[in-house]
Design a protein around this nucleic acid. Structure first.
Lengths: 183, 183
DNA sequence: CGATTATGTCAATAACACTGACATAGTTTC
DNA sequence: GAAACTATGTCAGTGTTATTGACATAATCG
């Protein structure tokens, strides 16, 4: 599994072999697969799934968030969010409060019970990340963050025109016209 | 979850704040979300999804793999794999050949058309990872790999007893008895 | 007032995964 | 060689997440 060093690089422009890049792709798959498995196991007996975790996570991290902001982060449709968010509200994990200036908004907050759930769910992940960070050392953590950040699709600058309509009913239209159906 | 080093510092035994660890969790979510979006868009018009990509990826990377090995890597049930693998075989991307020594096995290979698909799917990901690697520098790449590897749940040693039954019909049983339903 | 925005809702469909049960070759073991 | 086990496949039903499309309500804006 180890490709110890780039060795003599044939192509100076691309210091990483295709093989090494493929290994990186795989690493991401395995890390994500294992990373989500702990909270999944906690959620299942509660009749919830990964989607609930994501909502609880982001609402916990950014309280007073609007529904629209949450949609933009998750990049799902409001219909998809409705099921999950509705359940969390009905079961008392999240409350919605009308916005102070714009009363159409429903600003989201975790209830104490929601906070408890959030902590319970993130605990194994914090353990996991904490252990990985400890094992790798501070410099590695910085590097890890840089690579992961560079992996993201850059957001359109938040002041960009036609960005207000960023949250549409159908967030992603497939070129060929079919559904996209995330897994 | 090893603590390889006893804290050399008083409180900084955990040199990373909960906030920083949470940021790492989020980073992983965003990176994975964006990372999978490119191949998803290619797959959709072909009537395929992320699951097909995973199969094509691993069969491409480890040719002559058995179905059982693939199941162990993906950690899904054979019924789930059947739908995806069956389609890939029917549509000519993958062929199955009986094993040389054990003729019960169906060893998997990409056809030329399967190889073309694999390259097409992985291309945007290779681009993405390559760009991120370039942006972060060689040292960062090593560190990135170390952290991501440490994030994984360690596999039971491959010679472990009761490991032969590693691939079961139902790979994961939820404590509370409900389904687990990955997303 | 009329248009737009923020949010919600009903209905149908797809992709992916699961549980449980059973079938068919081929291999191993006694 | 028969019984037991293994590798793989298949039928049937269900749940979770997400999609598309259409319409509804309330509040804000010009």
């Amino acid at each position: 599994m180890a490709t110890p060093r780039p060795r003599a690089r044939p192509d100076p422009g691309a210091p990483w072999s295709e093989e090494q890049i493929r290994e990186g792709i795989e690493l991401l798959f395995f890390a994500y697969r294992d990373f989500t498995s702990d909270p999944d196991r906690i959620l299942a007996p509660l009749g919830m799934g990964r989607a609930h975790h994501r909502v609880v996570h982001f609402v916990g991290r950014t309280p007073d968030m609007t529904v629209g902001e949450l949609l933009a982060i998750l990049k799902i449709t409001k219909q998809s969010l409705a099921r999950v968010l509705g359940q969390l509200v009905r079961e008392g994990y999240i409350v919605q409060r009308p916005g102070a200036t714009d009363r159409r908004e429903r600003r989201l907050h975790l209830t104490p019970s929601g906070q408890a759930l959030e902590r319970r769910l993130s605990e194994p992940q914090r353990q996991r990340v904490g252990a990985a960070y400890r094992a790798a050392g501070p410099a590695a953590v910085e590097a890890f963050r840089r690579v992961l950040t560079a992996l993201r699709t850059p957001e359109p600058a938040p002041g960009t025109p036609a960005n207000k309509a960023n949250v549409r009913q159908s967030p992603r239209r497939t070129p060929g016209g079919r559904l996209s159906g995330k897994s």
